[in-house]
Each structure stands twice: as C-alpha cells, then as structure tokens.
Design a protein around this nucleic acid. Sequence first.
DNA 1: CCTATATCGATGCGATTGCAACGATATCGC
DNA 2: GCGATATCGTTGCAATCGCATCGATATAGG
Lengths: 146, 146
Amino acid sequence: MTGSPTPGSVAAWVALMRAQTATLARIEADLDGAGLPPLAWYDVLLELRRAERASKRLRQRDLQAALLLAGYNLSRLLDRMAGAGLVAREPTPDDRRGIDIVPTAEGRAMRRRMWPVYARALGHHVGRHFDAAEATTLATLLERLR
Amino acid sequence: MTGSPTPGSVAAWVALMRAQTATLARIEADLDGAGLPPLAWYDVLLELRRAERASKRLRQRDLQAALLLAGYNLSRLLDRMAGAGLVAREPTPDDRRGIDIVPTAEGRAMRRRMWPVYARALGHHVGRHFDAAEATTLATLLERLR
DNA sequence: CCTATATCGATGCGATTGCAACGATATCGC
DNA sequence: GCGATATCGTTGCAATCGCATCGATATAGG
C-alpha cells in the first residue's frame, strides 16, 4: 500500500504551508515598509541579546543551531550584518576554529527599533485571529513538528 | 504603547515558522532522495489535474492565485517544467494576453510517480504526530491566517 | 606521539528568488 | 471611438540560496 496519509493531516499540511507563506510575507512587508531589514536579521539580534542577558558569548555554531539555519547561509547573513555595522566577529577564546558573534551598539539599537514594528505586525497578522487558549493550542500542536 | 502581542501568539508564530521550515525540508529531502523534482512541481501538476477533472483549462493567472506564487516566479517555474517536458503553454482562446497551461502525458505520469513518495513523507513527518481530531483542529486554526 | 577522522566556518559556482520595468492586450470613462 | 488605465505574462539584473569543497583546527585511536 502506498500509505495514504489521513485527509486531515493533508489539510493540516496545506494550511501550514499557506499560513506560513502568507503571514511571513505580510510581516516582511511591514518591516520593509518601515525601512527596516528582514526578519532574519531580527532573529539574529534577538539571539545575541539573549546571550548577553545570560552573560554568555555566542558562537556562530550555536547561533546556527538556534536559528535552524544552514552554516553557509549564516556565514553570509553575518557578512551582510557585519557590513551594515550591526555585529562583529571575534575569535572564540578556547577554540581557534570558532568565531564569537557579538552585537555592536548599532546592532542593539536596530533590534530595539525593529521590535515595535514586528510586534505590531504580529498582533495584526497573527494575534488578532486567536484568543489565548487557541494560540496555546496552536503552538503546542506545532511544537510536535520540530 | 508598542502593543505587545500576547505571549501565546508569539509562541504560536515562532512554532509556525519552525514547523514549516523543518517539515518542508524533510519532505523535500525525501523527494530529492527518490530522484524526484521539488514539491512546487507537484503543486503545479496537482492543480492541473484538478482543472482537467473539472474539464477546465487553467490560465496561468489562475494557477498563480491558486499557488500563492508571484507571477514572475511562476513564469520561470513553468519554463523549467516545460523544459522538462511536463507542461505545455497554449494561447488562451478568448484573451490574447493569456496563456493556458496544460500537462503533457509525461507531466501526468510524473504527478503519479511523485504522489506515493509525497504521501509517505506526509504520513511520516506530519500525520504520525496527530490523531484525526488534532489534525482538524490544527488545520482549522491555520486557515484563519490565510 | 602521530596519523585518521570530525568539526568549524568560508567560498566558488550554478540555481532560484525578488524587484523593477517592459510589451502586448483588454477595459474603463468620456 | 479613443485615450487613459489596468491586467497578463516576461525579462534583465542583482541578491540570496544550496551544493560541493576547502583550509584550519580539534579530537580520537593506536
């Protein structure tokens, strides 16, 4: 047998693809409309802030794992962000293969500038559609697909 | 106020991004591993079959709307698929700007060849994680983000 | 210690995507 | 009917992604 999946799970998958594509496009459009960089830059800056709050330096490898990003992709994303003056690369103290990524003052400022726009977009394009219980249900179900 | 969205909806959004990215990557890997073309090709071929079943010809514009795909992107996707002999372009009878997209015999065969692999991947990477009620709940919630 | 293997990050190159603009045709408003 | 505007699909070009590979360093096994 070809193992036809349940109709419900096909519907869920199709809905997942479309929801992500459509919502991401709307959020990116809001950021772009405000003259801000793409969402991926925010994700990087947010991870960097989390690390700073925990008084840790973040290795590129760890950033890669946190963002589910291919290594070569992250290398070049950081090229662009470093070019824009938002992050700096420093050698990892105890592993000479490694690079620590640190935010610059401008990088921290950029994250603060992006958040209000991102938050507004999130409320408008996601939060608006769910009450608290629904949002939790949705998050819980989606977690299983990690 | 910056209008912080509810914590639940932020969690739902993050989970949505990760679930889609991770699951899509797994499914694409299964298709690629079976020597088959990307998922987008299947989506096109499926829409074409739907149209044929309804005895309708499908305009490129309608395909674009059905797939939530940018026009220029679809143009070139169809270039590749036509190059592979899977679809053909024909002038729309009543609108000389338009192009009808029709599947070739090879295109229909390719869809039939892709489905078992896709179905297996879907069962493995999506269906496995949900019972019928959960899948329906998930689909229903995600529909709201269209 | 010293070779074999694994990990970390970068890079050359071809494929794909996104943006802006275009040519062709259709539709609208006068 | 006719000029202004909108729609359909394509294309040039730059940015980004994905794959394969590389150089450098670290770790494991004998």
